[in-house]
């Protein structure tokens, strides 16, 4: 910080410096916590990647297609086979599995954090009011900015990219959950109260089941935003399709960039359709579609 007096005609505030100082203090003080976080995230990522990349790619394609068939339709299974086979034939299989691992772990953690936050915000107007600017900040701050501090805290590798992804992808999870709970028919909630149900029971038996389809839409958004972060994550050392895009950009090789980009699109469509199919299978969604 500068020692000079503040000159209102030529204002200079070292906002960046202050945040950086604060961050330095934070990393030093909480180093043990950060270490644990790093170990856990790295472990989850490695574990999932091991599982996804161990079987031959044809086996994995069959498994993905089977999942698509079960939750959606045989047509979607055909698309799955074609799409993933294309990825493999472009020699992007391992990179795709790395990216899938990154996205699944990041999206899962973002969901685990954002859904309870959303419920809390729906229950308390004060929390909702406090969260709103924070979420706006998280969503509008250029995503790349998150890379810098996380890079310092965790070093080169997949973890800083993952943390940035979680921060960037979380807001829609919170917003959709809050909206979903608030949109539950107040009369049905009143019915729970009128028959003497407790607030936790109303949450579990009425609000969450009725809000589930909308919450799932939020989770879908979380996954899509996570996917959009893979290229940025690659800039701080995450492997996968993002890295291929970055190297294609750096060496100006259109072919690499296009192939990696196509693989990302295949992953995105697959995840989107699976999650929205799961939302359609929510008990409320199924029961309300029934006809006599």
């Amino acid at each position: 910080m500068s020692d000079e007096a503040f000159d209102p005609l030529d204002p200079r505030l070292d906002v960046g410096e202050w945040v950086s100082d604060a961050f330095d203090w934070f990393t030093e003080t909480f180093q043990p916590v950060l270490d644990v976080v790093e170990t856990v995230l790295q472990g989850l990522y490695d574990g999932l990647y091991e599982v996804l990349s161990a079987p031959p790619f044809l086996v994995m394609i069959a498994l993905f297609a089977a999942l698509g068939w079960v939750v959606r339709s045989w047509k979607f299974a055909v698309f799955t086979v074609a799409g993933f086979y294309l990825v493999a034939s472009m020699d992007r299989w391992d990179a795709a599995m790395e990216t899938l691992s990154l996205v699944v772990v990041a999206a899962a953690l973002a969901t685990l954090i954002s859904v309870p936050l959303g419920i809390w915000a729906a229950k308390s107007q004060a929390v909702s009011n406090a969260l709103r600017p924070v979420l706006d900040f998280m969503q509008t701050m250029p995503a790349m900015v998150y890379l810098i501090p996380t890079l310092f805290a965790f070093g080169i590798g997949v973890v800083p990219g993952m943390i940035s992804t979680i921060v960037f992808a979380m807001p829609p999870g919170v917003r959709f959950t809050e909206l979903a709970i608030r949109q539950v028919d107040p009369e049905v909630v009143e019915a729970g109260q009128a028959f003497g149900s407790s607030p936790t029971r109303i949450l579990r038996q009425i609000q969450l089941p009725l809000a589930l389809p909308t919450i799932m839409a939020g989770i879908n958004q979380v996954i899509m935003l996570s996917l959009s972060m893979v290229v940025l994550a690659a800039m701080v050392g995450a492997a996968g399709l993002g890295l291929d895009v970055v190297s294609g950009l750096q060496s100006l090789r259109v072919a690499t960039g296009v192939e990696a980009g196509l693989a990302v699109v295949v992953l995105a469509i697959y995840l989107d359709r699976i999650v929205s199919a799961l939302a359609d299978r929510a008990p409320v969604a199924r029961a309300t579609k029934l006809r006599t």
Binding site: D185, V188, E190, A191, A194, P209, P283, V284, R286
Partner: peptide, 13 residues
């Protein structure tokens, strides 16, 4: 007990 204008049934039950 109570009966509601728009029935207030649980759609998933």
């Amino acid at each position: 007990g109570m009966v509601f204008q728009h029935f207030a049934l649980l759609p998933h039950r």
